[in-house]
Simulated assay, not measured.
Amino acid sequence: MGIGGISIWQLVIVLGIIILLFGTKKLRNLGGDLGGAVKGFKKAMKEESATETTDEKKIEQDATFKAADETATKQQKPNDQQQS
């Protein structure tokens, strides 16, 4: 008994019929196209992940700079009042 109740011999027969119908050249091209599509998909997912990470870092940096600016502004206000 093979995968899901299908024996190895049944799979070999089905594969043989597919090769006879489409030919090895078409199957090779189909396999190459499928592989290229999977590779492109993985590359796009990796780039999207990198973009999201970059955006998150920018948001964190903006928040840090904003907090630093607020701290500097608070420290300057008492000094400005003393000089007046």
Rank of each mutant, 00 (worst) to 15 (best):
A37M: 06
Q83E: 14
I19S: 14
T73C: 05
A50T: 00
K43M: 01
K46Q: 15
F22T: 05
I19H: 13
K74D: 10
I3A: 11
A63E: 15
F65N: 15
I8E: 14
L34N: 10
Q10T: 09
D55A: 12
L21Y: 14
V38A: 03
T54Y: 13
G32N: 15
T24W: 15
I19L: 14
D55P: 08
K77R: 02
Q10W: 07
G35P: 02
M45T: 03
A37H: 12
K58V: 10
D33P: 02
T24K: 11
G16P: 06
D62G: 12
S84C: 05
F22Q: 11
M45D: 03
L15I: 11
I59E: 09
K39A: 12
A68D: 11
G4R: 13
T53Q: 04
K26W: 15
G2N: 05
I19F: 14
L15R: 10
A67C: 08
L15T: 04
L27S: 05
T51N: 12
G31A: 13
K66R: 14
D80E: 12
T53K: 05
I13E: 12
A68E: 13
K46W: 15
M1H: 08
D69K: 05
K58D: 10
N79L: 11
I6S: 04
K25I: 14
K42F: 14
V14N: 08
A50I: 01
I18L: 06
K43L: 04
Q83K: 01
G36I: 09
S7R: 10
R28S: 08
S49W: 06
Q10F: 05
K77E: 00
T73Q: 03
G5F: 00
T64Q: 06
Q83I: 02
M1I: 01
F41I: 05
T51I: 12
L11H: 04
I17D: 11
L11K: 04
T24V: 14
L30H: 03
K39E: 07
E56D: 11
K66M: 11
D62W: 13
A67D: 15
A44K: 13
